[in-house]
Amino acid sequence: MSIKFEKVNYTYDIGLPSEKVALRDISHIFSDHCFTALIGKTGSGKSTLLQHLNALILPTSGKISIGSYIIDFSLEYKDGKVDERKMKRKRKKKLKDIKSLRKKVGIVFQFPEYQLFEETVLKDVMFGPKNFGKSEEEAKKVSYEALKQVDLDSSYYERSPFELSGGEKRRVAIAGILALEPDVLVLDEPTVGLDADGEKNFLNLIKDIYSRGTSIILSTHNMDLVLKYAENALLLEDGKIVLADRPHVLFKNEELLKRSVLRKPKVLEFADELIKKGLPLNVENIFDIPSLAKEIDRCKR
């Protein structure tokens, strides 16, 4: 399922002193099976954009097509000016069957542990699938599956989610979204607050889910992650997309990196040093430490 943004704008608190334009003229296509990383300074609009992906936030203007689901608030003109009346009518119309959309696109928020509420871990994970019309049995099945995916031992299933540690809670919450079996999995800064092992396991899980056909769209400040896993990097700056390309293209653009206070991944910095020393490395082949080693090996031969 591909997701298409056309000239999407979003403003918080319109007409109030705290009015804030968060997205400006966003046009982008998230292709059918993509792994896209959203990056940018804090406050650049990443979270805002992500929430558009399943209509938790509706655009102030613009059109979003999510598979066959279309939210069309594109501007209407009359005599060269925006036709406010027509726009108002458009916004008034109720969105139909928003649940079907939410089933296809699942969002894991930053600190998702705050959404837990059931008595047991298993029940909490089952809550989502049951909301989307699965029977008790089916819900149980997908929930077991999801809990296994996030590496939670079955001894946890009957415990209260509130007795768990932060990282364990996070895993339960993520399982709660995975159990929906969404076509597109959206994650807002998913690795913040996980320990090193937890982060590694989690990223492997994401990669796994991706390889099974689910699209992944996530926001992150972790550039190593972007280089290693993402196919596409989307750089936001003050609500505008300034770059949408492969991570390597981004990391070559020193000026952009500097402007958005982004750090190059360590492996690339190391590769740059080696190149300076005269090793003819091909940066495009480097994603992480093993691939760097392989590239060095290739040069030596």
Binding site: Q51, N54, L56, I98, K99, R102, K103, G106, I107, F109, P112, Y114, Q115, L116, F117, F127, G128, N131, F132, G176, I177, L180
Partner: peptide, 29 residues
Amino acid sequence: IKAQASRGVDYNQGRLKEKFKALTSMIIP
């Protein structure tokens, strides 16, 4: 509310029992 909406909670529709469940899913967290 946003997090639970992503899990399919609809705060406006549904029968009384579902609404009650929707409310608890917001209040407890």
